[in-house]
Write a protein that binds this DNA or RNA. Sequence first.
DNA 1: AATGCGGGGTA
DNA 2: TACCCAGCATT
Length: 429
Amino acid sequence: MDERKEAGGGEDELFFSMRLLEWYNGQKRDLPWRRSRDPYKIWVSEIMLQQTRVDTVIPYFNRFIERFPTIDALAEAPEEEVLKAWEGLGYYSRARNLQSAAQQVKELYGGKVPDDREAVFGLKGVGPYTAGAILSIAFNRPEPAVDGNVMRVLSRFFLIEDDIAKPKTRIKMEALAKSLIPEGEASSFNQALMEHGALTCTPKSPRCLVCPVMERCAGRLAGVETELPVKTKAKPPRPEERLAALVEGRGEHAGRVLIRQRPTRGLLARMWELPHWPAPGDIGAGSGRPGEAAAMDRLRRSLAEAGVAARPEAYMMAAEHTFSHIHWTLQVYRCREEELPQPMAAEARGLYAAGSGAAAGGDAPGGEPALLLPGAEQPGLFADEGGAEEERPDMRWIGREDMANYAFPNVFLKLLNAYFDGQEAAGRR
DNA sequence: AATGCGGGGTA
DNA sequence: TACCCAGCATT
């Protein structure tokens, strides 16, 4: 093998690095986190940019920095506020890990982002890519920052056919990427590599005609640039049919709807949602709407088991939500809270769920616990869908004005906003 | 090594 | 509509 291929100093390698650096210095985008060298801002941006496009991140980044301008501010904020600032961005453990890491930095490193590899790598939510990005971009250390963009770019230019889904390939790419960093230019070069992948060497139809390194791109010269990188396909998400209840409150809950908080771990941890349960196979299976009568009966019983006295009244709509591993189809039913007989209502009032932590902003107006069925043990243990025991979820009645205080996954955010919009429009008529 | 974890973009 | 994109933590 040609010796020059081994190190980063070969002709093609030098050409690649210098051309990309030149190109980047000439046309890098003006992004909010590039207007500062504050390692905290670089860090926040890199966490947000994991699995997320630049255009999506920009408004979140600006709001987030405005709300939590420093590591101290983030470390000391209520967790619900951090989650709310992340609402709609997805992968919510990123937000919780980021705050937890801010507390680490505060306690262990005097509130300043550390600049050595071990320390940065040890922060919650910071893996090989993010550690490299922080060290190189913020501190100009010659560390590789290999993300999907970089693997795509390198696999094409150097015609590398290893499967990028394999961890081993990332290790190999890191060695290559590190060897390509020009002396003293780690910050600009690593950003150049990613910028090139985002703007020019794109996944579907790479803009080879305007590519600054096209003449020596091995993938292009071999005519296989669109076949690269090689990557094994992910499994398709498994479908899940679920019945969701939009419960309209009556009496003292008039004008409000019932929401519940998800468990502290797992999917959409600690986010709020409309209550929903798996649709029995014979109701939701296959395409089309389930048998409404059966679904409504099922929903009424699920609500009762959850300690909510409510009657499903009509089918509203279907809502879809796709995760990387699950595809939800939610059949949403409009339900009405039951008006309890007076004496029972009085009795039930004593059975409010023991408030388990106020939502963001403390006591939200209308954010009181759900009125529970008499006899419902509270807040006891119950068997969840997997059969495991966990705390009965916190439930609350909320109005439109309370939406600001609870973090919802997008599907419920859209659903609730559409519902409150409809209510408002109906109210005007 | 395999799986869990969101949301949005493009063809 | 169908398919693609892809870091980190946990197991």
